[in-house]
């Protein structure tokens, strides 16, 4: 499959209360690849991820400089439509955060707010397809009206993935998606992530090196707000060029 640069950061900096959190990040993230961001906690990896769908806008006194391009358009330009950006760049969070509604309504919410269906049949079909895509359909197809809270943690996280997929994003951001899950659920989600790269560009933050090695094509190492290293995962884990990464 032909890949191209989906995301590009040019001297991108981020600040909380004028204190620098990301320093001159320069990176090209490729389409239909899984890129892992690793590093110790507080290194800015989550800040970078949350800059990609402008989730940080919710925080008071957050500001940026430099450029962050998605499909060669600076998403921090003044005229950016945040709604369509977030539609294009989906997100899955560290702790599963389903809505306090039925399984069906959890998925349907995105379709409803973006008016992405003409009739109930189309709505149902889209919900079904996204649940299938997230490998959850077989487990929940008989009780779609059950509360999402009745699912196990791993199922909830796959529900959240299905919820992100249903509005057809191009990029999916994952913020330590397996941090709160048991090993079996983790394995299922990792398998799912590998399958999803066929259709999506995936950026995943993890503090787990093994996980990065298992799922990603590219890895980047962040430390104290700076990008220390960026290369193909196989190269980083066999012969790191930087001493810090090695440790």
């Amino acid at each position: 499959m032909e890949t191209f640069t989906k995301i590009e950061a040019k001297n991108f900096c981020a600040y909380y209360n004028n204190k620098i959190a990301l320093k001159n990040i320069n990176i090209k993230i490729y389409s239909n690849k899984i890129t892992a961001i690793i590093g110790p906690s507080g290194c800015g990896k989550s800040t970078f991820l949350r800059s990609l769908n402008r989730m940080n806008d919710l925080i008071e006194n957050f500001s940026t400089s430099g450029e962050l391009l998605v499909d060669n358009v600076n998403i921090y330009a003044k005229d950016t439509d945040i709604i369509s950006l977030r539609k294009k760049v989906g997100m899955v969070f560290q702790k599963p955060n389903p809505f306090p509604k039925s399984i069906f309504e959890n998925i349907a919410y995105g379709l409803r707010i973006h008016k992405m269906f003409k009739n109930y049949d189309e709505l149902y079909m889209k919900v079904e397809n996204s649940l299938k895509e997230a490998a959850l359909w077989d487990e929940v197809k008989d009780d779609l009206n059950k509360s999402a809270f009745d699912l196990s943690g791993g199922q909830q996280q796959r529900l959240c993935i299905a919820r992100a997929l249903v509005i057809k994003p191009e990029i999916i951001l994952m913020d330590e998606p397996t941090a709160s899950l048991d090993p079996i659920s983790t394995a299922k989600i990792e398998e799912l992530i590998r399958k999803l790269k066929e259709h999506y560009t995936i950026v995943i933050v993890t503090h787990n090196m093994q996980q990065a090695a298992r799922v990603s094509d590219y890895s980047t190492f962040f430390m104290q707000g700076e990008m220390i290293e960026y290369d193909e995962t196989t190269k980083i884990f066999t012969a790191p060029s930087n001493k810090l990464t090695e440790e």
């Binding site: 919710l58 969070f93 955060n97 809505f99 919410y109």
Partner: peptide
């Protein structure tokens, strides 16, 4: 919780939709 609002915003919902459909219920 904040996570509920974040989930809604991340799907591209605006503030009004988030408040009316998620936070208020």
């Amino acid at each position: 919780p904040l996570s509920l609002r974040e989930a809604s915003f991340a799907l591209g919902a605006n503030k009004l939709q988030t408040v009316v459909f998620q936070v208020l219920p």
